[in-house]
Amino acid sequence: MKLKPNIATSEAGFIFNPATGDSFAANPLAADILARAKTGLDAAAIKADILARYDVAPGQLEKDWDDLLAQLRDFNLLDQ
């Protein structure tokens, strides 16, 4: 998962795409994931960390991860 370089994320979970002017609100887990992704952490490391900290089965996380990617793609936030 690689966000477009100019995407601005805030601590409150706001995401701003300066190329389109769109704003987004992330829920706490999505905000956490995006913040880590911006630091350059790769997907496997982020997922391992979530599995360690949250009460979720690996299969469920994989499904939800794919769905998050789909949303990011749909919102034009991913570096293709």
Binding site: F24, A25, N27, A30, Y54, D55, Q60, W65, Q71, L72
Partner: peptide, 14 residues
């Protein structure tokens, strides 16, 4: 004790 989980999701602000 692990944190309660809710899937990550985004909402476009309109």
């Amino acid at each position: 004790m692990k944190l309660p989980y809710e899937r990550p999701t985004l909402r476009k602000l309109t």
